[in-house]
């Protein structure tokens, strides 16, 4: 075939450019570690990659939720354990009041101590977490869940005592319901218990019972058997509350176990997801390195060919 000088030049420079393009693409692939540099390189695999990316983002989100839920439950757990200690101390104090040899002064001293432990329990029930939220207030944690509030009669007026002061009573001001947080495709973590679950079960709440017991301790003189009856009632109240606190601890333990499992599953899913991404887009270096060598050889050859052909003209010899 007849070949014109320009054709020769075009062919050689064209193949040189092509060889350069191939080398440059392989180098880009090697530096990014990816076989697919843009979606059109493999539209089908790219769609899979987009889906995997979206799912990965969710898995990371859930993993964040698991951490937050674990922190929240951890806060409740330590508060509940403190409550247990204080309840035990209160119980011991109540029982010690049963010693028949106690004077009024001794009883008043015990009453004072009980008031302190109960006040600590109230503070624990009003523990604050992130975002200034009361963690035992359920979904209405914007205000102290355990409060003394004025008693209101049917007409909406405050009830007054003999001295004309408003009568107050203990009240749970939070919400009975607790928050749920999504931790996997199908699981939600329940964020612990409320002060209502712990202190406001049965006919009379724990704090009222303790107030009543303290009043008896401070009373003088006491009727026959009045102290014994009060101790019985107070111990019952404390035991019921302890039971609720322990139940809360058990629930939290179970919830944290669930979260740990969810976290493990999540970690596995992240690993699987990344493995799938990698199988779709990752560059096979074992294939790419020899490819690069060949492409570089081709490039060198075309460059040499180009250089020699440009000097190769009959005009050099005449």
């Amino acid at each position: 075939m007849r070949v014109s000088t320009m054709q020769m030049h075009n062919t050689l420079s064209g193949s040189m450019q092509k060889a350069q393009g191939n080398v440059s693409k392989t180098l880009l692939q090697m530096s990014s570690g990816k076989e697919i540099l843009k979606p059109s390189d493999d539209p089908f695999a790219s769609v899979q990659l987009l889906k995997l990316d979206d799912h990965l983002s969710k898995l990371e989100t859930w993993s964040g939720n698991i951490d937050k839920a674990t922190t929240f439950l951890g806060n409740q757990e330590s508060a509940l354990m403190d409550m247990n200690n204080n309840l035990d101390r209160t119980r011991d104090l109540v029982l010690s009041a049963g010693n028949g040899a106690l004077s009024l002064e001794d009883r008043k001293a015990i009453a004072k101590e009980i008031e302190q432990t109960v006040s600590t329990l109230k503070s624990l029930a009003n523990t604050k977490g992130a975002g200034d939220e009361y963690i035992f207030g359920g979904t209405a944690g914007q205000q102290e869940p355990v409060q003394k509030v004025p008693v209101i009669d049917e007409k909406g007026n405050p009830v007054l005592d003999a001295d004309g002061n408003p009568v107050e009573e203990w009240s749970f001001e939070g919400s009975e319901s607790v928050r749920e947080v999504q931790v996997s495709d199908s699981q939600h973590a329940t964020l612990g218990s409320t002060a209502s679950d712990l202190f406001f079960q049965g006919d009379k709440d724990f704090f009222t019972q303790m107030d009543e017991f303290v009043a008896i301790l401070n009373k003088d003189p006491l009727a026959e058997g009045e102290l014994e009856g009060a101790i019985d009632a107070a111990i019952k109240g404390i035991d019921a509350t302890s039971g609720a606190v322990n139940e809360g601890l058990t629930d939290i333990g179970a919830e944290i176990n669930m979260l740990e499992e969810a976290k493990d599953t999540n970690t596995d899913l992240v690993a699987t997801n990344k493995a799938m991404q990698s199988s779709l887009e990752a560059l096979d270096y074992a294939e790419a390195i020899p490819r690069l060598t060949i492409e570089q050889t081709v490039l060198t050859a075309t460059q040499k060919g180009y250089a020699s052909s440009s000097t190769l003209t009959l005009f050099n010899y005449i």
């Binding site: 859930w62 937050k68 839920a69 929240f72 992130a130 975002g131 939220e133 928050r179 947080v181």
Partner: peptide, 10 residues
Amino acid sequence: NAASADPMEI
């Protein structure tokens, strides 16, 4: 999602 754990957190 992050807000769902602490919806009151500003």
